[in-house]
Design a protein around this nucleic acid. Sequence first.
DNA 1: ATATATTTTTGAATATTATACGAATTTATG
DNA 2: CATAAATTCGTATAATATTCAAAAATATAT
Lengths: 149, 149
Amino acid sequence: MKNITEKLIGLFKSGYCTPQIARIAKHIKEPSTTIHYNIKKLESEGAIKAYKAVFDYKKINQGTCNYVFINLGQDHYGDPEQIAYQLAKYDEVESIDICTGEFELIIKLRTKDIDEYYEFVKKIIKKYGFRRTESVTSLKQVKTEFVIL
Amino acid sequence: MKNITEKLIGLFKSGYCTPQIARIAKHIKEPSTTIHYNIKKLESEGAIKAYKAVFDYKKINQGTCNYVFINLGQDHYGDPEQIAYQLAKYDEVESIDICTGEFELIIKLRTKDIDEYYEFVKKIIKKYGFRRTESVTSLKQVKTEFVIL
DNA sequence: ATATATTTTTGAATATTATACGAATTTATG
DNA sequence: CATAAATTCGTATAATATTCAAAAATATAT
């Protein structure tokens, strides 16, 4: 056993997929070369960032999902983007937005369980010294990444 | 001009893509048939829900992103799931979670502009009679759907 | 309005890739 | 340790993407 599954999950999370031109061509009843042309155009314009898989995260050991709302500390208050891009690198981070309102950052986190979630939050608080964080746990995910579960 | 782009965006939002088996095989240096076997297994187990594209949403006229936090009204308080699955059907909804804490639902919304966002929120409040909603606007999206923008 | 350039669509030929299948190997189970 | 089940993997084939050149449609300038 080579545990290829684990590697696949990593690759599929943000790429290593491609459009199904033939299927689309049949579906919208246009020649596949026309579909091909239009897709390449979207790609070259940068409108399409990636092709990827969406998982049933419970089945790949990432069933715990939390939103973390963050107030940056005084050090970083003027530069939320730099912090955001650093946080974006973590695999556990599904999304991160710089926002209006009470909090500067909203992070959506996926972890195996509460323990892993807690370790992650502890780690980033320690590292970046956030003034305040507030978490909301997702009890049930009905739709993610435009896919209904 | 057949405006195939619009149709593609609709299809790619939640499907019509497929894994790149040959590319993965080269990347992790395993036979493509082994990769194929492992992917089909993930699919049959239901671990993979879909293969899809991730967009630069500004470039496809969906540059406005808002989180909407919802308190259900008394009518629906006992059954957040039913409401959530109905809301999930809207194209504008990227994700919807049933949550702990102050609000029962967190919706991530993508619209063309503030006007479209406002119309959408008005519509669902009117339809479902939420007790309270609170919105947070994303000023900058650093990562979405596990893809760094 | 008309000529010209640009973009988009399309079919035919080719290159690449996924898939089916069977055999071999590895791993799990009693 | 024997047997069953799961996984790996090579070969052959089917399906698909891609290239290319031409035609059509659209935009632009005169």
